[in-house]
């Protein structure tokens, strides 16, 4: 009788624990997948951001050096405008993607924070290869 009771309890325990494990593991895998997917677009944004700051730095150095200033600034301005436009278009895409992600998948603030922490860790570890 006691053995039967133990068996029933073990079965019930297993029946309870399996879905919990499944859900927990499933959620973890999903977050990794989301981070991996998002890191691609985020890397593009990081590369563009670095480029914007480099261009700004370059512009400042040219502005201080008066020789050939006008011509060089004009040609640099073309690159700046192009980078700025690309950045704004990409920013829109990221904003939409992030909005959907937060609305549909990561509705909990803790999940969102975990996502952004993992994203940062992943990109810092792997770097951005997009050019």
């Amino acid at each position: 009788m006691a053995k039967n009771y133990q068996l029933i309890m073990k079965t019930l325990y297993l029946l309870l624990i399996i879905p919990v494990c499944f859900l927990a593991c499933g959620a973890k895998v999903d977050l990794d997948k989301i981070v991996l997917e998002f890191s691609e677009i985020q890397c593009r944004a990081i590369v563009l951001k670095d480029k914007r700051f480099q261009l700004a730095e370059h512009l400042r150095s040219i502005e201080l050096d008066s020789i050939h200033k006008k011509m060089e600034i004009d040609s640099l301005q073309v690159v700046i405008d192009d980078t700025k436009n690309k950045s704004l278009i990409l920013a829109d895409s990221i904003k939409v993607k992030l909005g959907e992600l937060f609305k549909n998948t990561l509705s909990d603030p803790y999940e969102r924070k975990e996502f952004s922490t993992l994203l940062e860790k992943y990109i810092r570890l792997n770097g951005c290869t997009y050019q």
Partner: peptide
């Protein structure tokens, strides 16, 4: 809170 507003411009979120 975590500020996600600069993520779109290539920054990491800051908390």
């Amino acid at each position: 809170f975590t500020d996600y507003s600069q993520l779109q411009f290539g920054f990491f979120a800051r908390s």
